[in-house]
Nucleic acid binder design. Structure first.
Lengths: 229, 229
DNA sequence: CGAGCAAAAATTGTATACAATTTGCCTTGG
DNA sequence: CCAAGGCAAATTGTATACAATTTTTGCTCG
C-alpha cells in the first residue's frame, strides 16, 4: 500500500511531520512496523535521518522502539489511554480559559475556518481527515493561549489520542461531532473564559465516554492471573 | 574542569542521564557548549551515540541545538521560565492529591529517607546535590501517583526548572528549604489529599516568588523596540 | 508430519569517512 | 590602524561500511 508521496530529500522534522500526520489520519495504525530502510527509501534519505525521526517520535510516545527489533507505531495500553485523557483533562480546560481571555478576532476567524474544514471533511466522508482536523483544533487553542510549553504537551497528547481512538473507539462509523468545537468557539467569541473552561472539560469527558477502556483479560498483568480458573 | 567520571562504553540513555544530572546539580550551566567530539571522548563512544543523546535532551528542552553550530545547555527565557512553572502549577497539585490517595507506608518511608538526604546535603554545604534532590522529591511524588505520562512531563519540567533556577534565582546562597517537603510528606502520612494539593500549590508559588522574572530590556522581543529612543 | 536445530537472510546498532557549514585568523588595501 | 576579504581549521550533517542481533528458512531426525 502506497501511503506517502515520494519527495526527494527531507529533514528529520519533515519525516516526523509526515509520519505523525499519517497517524492522525489513521493511515498508520498502532502496531505497524516502520522499517528504517523502507522509510529511508520513501523519503529519499539515509537511515541516519530516519533514525533521528523515529527516535524523536518514540520520545513523543507515538513510536515504540524495541532494541534490535525496530520501530513500531505505538499501541497504548488501556492504562496509558486513561493517562493520556487524564492529562488532557488537567491541561486543556485551563488552556481553553487562557485562550478565551486572549483570543483576537483573527484567532476566532481562524477557528471558524477550521471548523468549516472539519464539516467539509465529514461531509465528503473523509473520516481520517476529519479526525486529524479535530485534533488540530485543540492544538490551535493551545496556540492561542500562547503557552508554548503546554502546547508541546498538548501536541503529544493529541497525537497519542489518535492512537487511543484507533484502538478503543466504540462506534466505528459514528460522529466526530465538531458540535462541541462550535460551542467552544462561541465562548471565545463571547470572551467567556468560564464557559470555555467548562465546555472543554465536558468535551473531553464526552470523548472519554465514547472509548471502551474496560480492562480486558488479555491485558491482565500477570500470567498467573490469566491462568486462574 | 573535570565534570564527569570516565567509564568505558555508555548508551545514549546513560549519557542523557549523566548530563541531566549535571544540569540538576548546576555543574553544567545554561549556555555551555556541548561539543560532540568532546562528549564522545568523555563517554568513550562515537559521535553517533552522543548525537542521539543531545537530540533527546533538546526534545526535553534541556539542550538547544542550532543547526551547523552545535548543542548548548538551554537558556530559558523569562517567558519560558514562567511557562515552566505555570505548567507545574497545573500538573503537580493534582498529582500530589492523587499521590496522597495512593501512598503506601513504603512510599512514605522512601520520602522520609529522601528528605533526610536533602538535609544531609544542605548540612554538608553541597548546594548542587541539595538542589538535585529537591527536584527528585517532586518526581518521586509523580511516581507515587502512578501517572507515567504526567511523570514524564514533570521530569521535563523539573529539569527545566533547574535551568530557570540557575538563571533567575534571587538570593544565591539562600535556602532550598525542604520545609515544604516535610509538610507534604505529613499530608501523605495523614492521607489528606486536600492538604497535599494545597501544600503543593503553595510550595510552587513560593518557589516562583523567589525567582526574579521581571522583564529585562535585553530580552525585548524586537530589535526595533530595543533601538527606540 | 512436526519439532528442533543450524545456517542464511534480513534488520538494527555503532563507528567511521566524507561533505557542508561555520568560525577564527591572517593578509591586504585603503 | 582598521575594515574587508579570503583561506584554513574546526565542527557539525549525512551517508556508508561494518558488527551485532534477530528472524526466517530449510534441513534432519524422530
Amino acid at each position: 500500500m502506497q501511503i506517502f508521496a515520494s519527495p526527494q530529500t527531507s529533514t528529520a522534522e519533515d519525516i516526523v511531520a509526515e509520519l505523525t500526520e499519517a497517524v492522525h489520519e489513521h493511515r498508520l495504525q498502532p502496531g505497524m512496523k516502520l522499517r528504517e530502510d523502507e522509510v529511508a527509501e520513501i523519503f529519499g534519505v539515509s537511515r541516519t535521518v530516519v533514525r533521528q525521526a523515529l527516535r524523536a517520535m518514540s520520545h513523543e510516545g507515538l513510536v515504540a522502539i524495541e532494541r534490535n527489533r525496530g520501530a513500531f507505531v505505538a499501541k497504548p495500553t488501556i492504562k496509558e489511554a486513561r493517562e493520556v485523557f487524564e492529562a488532557r483533562t488537567l491541561l486543556e480546560p485551563q488552556t481553553a480559559r487562557a485562550a478565551a481571555e486572549r483570543a483576537t478576532s483573527e484567532d476566532i476567524a481562524a477557528l471558524e475556518r477550521h471548523i468549516e474544514n472539519e464539516h467539509a471533511a465529514i461531509d465528503m466522508g473523509n473520516a481520517g481527515l476529519a479526525l486529524k482536523l479535530s485534533g488540530l483544533f485543540h492544538l490551535e487553542i493551545a496556540r492561542i493561549a500562547n503557552q508554548r510549553t503546554i502546547e508541546a504537551f498538548a501536541q503529544q497528547l493529541v497525537s497519542r489520542s489518535s492512537l487511543v481512538i484507533a484502538l478503543y473507539w466504540q462506534r466505528r462509523g459514528a460522529l466526530c461531532e465538531s458540535h462541541a468545537h462550535h460551542a467552544l468557539m462561541n465562548a471565545f467569541r463571547r470572551q467567556d473564559p468560564d464557559s470555555a473552561e467548562e465546555l472543554m472539560k465536558g468535551h473531553l469527558l464526552d470523548l472519554i465516554s465514547q472509548l471502551d477502556l474496560r480492562d480486558k483479560p488479555s491485558e491482565s498483568a500477570s500470567l498467573k492471573d490469566a491462568l486462574k480458573k
